[in-house]
């Protein structure tokens, strides 16, 4: 299985050939945000105010890292479960968000919003020490009061990801187990 190297910011052209099940190494700038930050994103959008960063072409990583130790760029940071962000996700995709990194199933509304517009990647749940080491630089850019849930700008190098929902409407969480069972009857 080939591994695809991707650099942010992403464009439709860069993600159009990604297929669910593809393994990706992602490099460049990404942003963090989970439950509490997403709640604020939507409050901001409802008031027609600006988000803390322009989401156009950007990727949000659903992560609440451990505190950074001295002499390290970042703590441990694996994905949190994505369904908790489902309610907040379609409005962000409408604003141009092109990628999300998390783990676990998305609901039908998110899957519909992804189709043709954005890609949902999984990072390996629980492999937080390994993924934390892919972060070269991290800085809090908004909502510092949320601590682990604050919005951070991360510079990552070769963050290992798997494409779950591609822009064509495929879903690895449906097709992966199905094809495994078919091959191993």
């Amino acid at each position: 299985m080939a591994t695809i190297k991707l650099e942010t910011p992403l464009t439709i052209d860069k993600i159009k050939d990604l297929h669910s099940g593809d393994q990706v190494l992602l490099s460049g700038i990404i942003y963090t945000g989970r439950d509490a930050a997403h709640k604020r994103f939507i409050e901001v959008l409802e008031k027609n105010e600006d988000l803390p960063f322009d989401v156009q072409g950007q990727v949000i990583y659903y992560v609440g890292p451990t505190p950074t130790k001295p002499n390290q760029a970042f703590g441990s940071g694996g994905p949190t479960t994505s369904y908790r962000m489902d309610a907040y996700t379609p409005p962000l995709i409408n604003k141009g968000l092109i990628g999300m990194i998390g783990k676990g199933k998305r609901n039908d509304e998110v899957k519909a919003a992804l189709k043709g517009h954005a890609v949902y990647f999984a990072a390996v749940g629980g492999a937080a020490a390994l993924m934390g080491k892919c972060v070269i630089k991290a800085e809090v850019i908004a909502y510092e009061d949320l601590q682990a849930e604050a919005v951070r700008r991360l510079e990552v190098k070769d963050l290992p990801l798997i494409v779950v929902n591609d822009i064509k409407g495929n879903d690895l969480y449906v097709e992966g187990p199905q094809s495994y069972l078919k091959e191993h009857k």
Partner: peptide, 21 residues
């Protein structure tokens, strides 16, 4: 293999294996 490698990194480098501690 990634999960096992992660556990080894965590142990050797004294990093939390998962961010949800």
């Amino acid at each position: 293999d990634i999960i096992i490698e992660n556990a080894n990194i965590a142990r050797q480098e004294n990093r939390p294996m998962c961010q949800d501690t």
